[in-house]
């Protein structure tokens, strides 16, 4: 029972704050709501038994990305000034399209995924095991993408610095 309650609380948090994050007038609030959504997601990961992912989600998103966001917001936002909203007609069109897409995708997904209710058993994910998989070169092991993403990170840092630094 406790799991259900936690899940539905998280579900409500995520749903409500997702919607608030994309409708709020003030950008700083938007960012805060996003943070809540991300933390809620981290909670879901924990609930599913991926505690490592929980840690990463919090460290990278809450600790990294959100900091950049807030930094950028403070840099570009003039206090007290609300962001203008889109024309109502356009909002309506976007809303209709999004809801239609949601209904369509939901319909397809709901009727086509395997119905699983009970969480299947899973062997415990020890850090050793995760590290082994990360550092391996066989099938279902991830050293190659790990190396490649490090190059992506380097490239993005170089690119971001080049664009952002002053003359």
């Amino acid at each position: 029972m406790a799991e259900q309650i936690i899940f539905y609380v998280l579900a409500v948090i995520i749903t409500v704050f997702s919607i608030l994050a994309v409708t709020s007038k003030q950008i700083i609030r938007s960012a805060t709501y996003l943070l809540f959504v991300l933390l809620g997601t981290a909670g879901l990961y924990l609930l599913l038994g991926f505690s490592y992912l929980f840690a990463v989600q919090i460290a990278v998103y809450a600790g990294g990305i959100m900091v950049i966001f807030i930094f950028a917001i403070l840099l570009t936002n003039r206090p007290g000034e609300n962001v203008k909203s889109e024309l109502p007609i356009r909002r309506l069109v976007a809303l209709v399209t999004s809801v239609a897409g949601l209904a369509f995708c939901g319909h397809i997904i709901y009727w086509n995924v395997k119905k699983v209710i009970q969480l299947p058993l899973m062997e415990e994910l020890t850090p050793q095991k995760l590290g082994h998989i990360m550092m391996g070169t066989d099938k279902y092991q991830y050293l190659l993408p790990f190396e490649m993403i490090s190059i992506l990170l380097l490239a993005c840092i170089v690119g971001a610095i080049m664009v952002a630094r002053r003359r």
Binding site: T15, S18, I19, V22, V83, K84, R90, L102
Partner: peptide, 17 residues
């Protein structure tokens, strides 16, 4: 939940200024 989040994101992308 993920679908709602996704389409909330889509809606945001289309409407935020």
């Amino acid at each position: 939940i993920s679908l709602i989040m996704f389409f909330a994101g889509v809606y945001g992308f289309l409407t935020r200024k």
